[in-house]
Design a protein around this nucleic acid. Sequence first.
DNA 1: TCTTCTGTTTGATCTGAATCAAGGAAGATC
DNA 2: GATCTTCCTTGATTCAGATCAAACAGAAGA
Lengths: 198, 198
Amino acid sequence: MRGQTLVWEGDDAIIVANIISGILKVSMSISDGREQIVGVIFPADFIGRPFGQKSPYSVTALSDAELCIFSRSSFDAFARNHPALEHKLLQRTLEELDRAREWMLLLGKKTATERIATLLLEMSIRLSETGCSVEQNELNEFALPLDRQQMGDVLGLTIETVSRQLSRLKADGVIGLPDRRMVSIQDRRRLQDLSAAA
Amino acid sequence: MRGQTLVWEGDDAIIVANIISGILKVSMSISDGREQIVGVIFPADFIGRPFGQKSPYSVTALSDAELCIFSRSSFDAFARNHPALEHKLLQRTLEELDRAREWMLLLGKKTATERIATLLLEMSIRLSETGCSVEQNELNEFALPLDRQQMGDVLGLTIETVSRQLSRLKADGVIGLPDRRMVSIQDRRRLQDLSAAA
DNA sequence: TCTTCTGTTTGATCTGAATCAAGGAAGATC
DNA sequence: GATCTTCCTTGATTCAGATCAAACAGAAGA
């Protein structure tokens, strides 16, 4: 259910799950309330912390979602006896690590405009991978799974800066904003230039 | 050899290696030269990108180092036939992902002072884990494996900000700086408070 | 010893994004 | 249809850290 938190930062990591549908966020926070979203999970992705005692982060649904949940202990045992599953899990974890590091570059070095451009492109790609029926690799209009506050928490920016940057991209004709959740990419090339890709 | 780059960002990922001794950095950069250090690798850690075509990041020695190198293709094949190795690799990758996410919180939300305090504590812990002969978990004086520029590149700060923050911690009696590489932690409790841990 | 070079510190100023502060729009609820 | 309520936008101001600009320290040569 949207808004529901499945795992709390610091709690015992008792579950592991596979996402069937829906989108979730993985977040970490500081005691004074500052929060950073450290991952966005799409269908077919994995959540949980196998082989660990505590979960270092929270997992919360951003939309209604269907999951396939396992208890961690039984999952751990099962995985150890099924190398193919562990192999798949290793691959996904390596991909997730690559994405986390890509995001460290964004958080450490990119400007606000570059961050927003990068996020919009990333969302368009990951959402198109999700809607897997059609092989559409250039999703140019989509509903953001994040509100402005959450975009700020992913990008290390405030809600006001996110809003201002989006307004500017719209004014420049790079994107359209039909409503608060929808984005249309009108000039993908320009957005790529603005994203300061490697 | 110190300063030597073993893997270039974007190159074919042809090697995989286990670190015997020494310290290395993993970094990503933007075409205009901005660089973010996305990982620091200690002895017993792993480098390389198994099961991938391109390495998304560079790996460079920060000190002289000894590695145990495998060609990626033979390693991949070997790993697939040795579940225990894959299991170990999965565990290490999960740990590295946790560290990367912890750092995303730092890069996205922490102040300069908090970043420096966090780095000093992290270094004291990881260096003490490395010098594994003695079970010393509170390493209070150590040589930084990073120079000021590199500290800035890990923390998403400039060299001047790093220097100023260190000077202030020294002036406040929290740390000592016997020479440009050495740090002594004089008030660990205070450093922990300043680090804004979860 | 003097010089050079590299890395570091410190100071002055600037600036991008944060913070503070209203408004506005679009659903919900009554 | 009016009134909340929630989320978003826009404007004014501030501030932490970046940038610009010198000096300084210590190691390595000459």
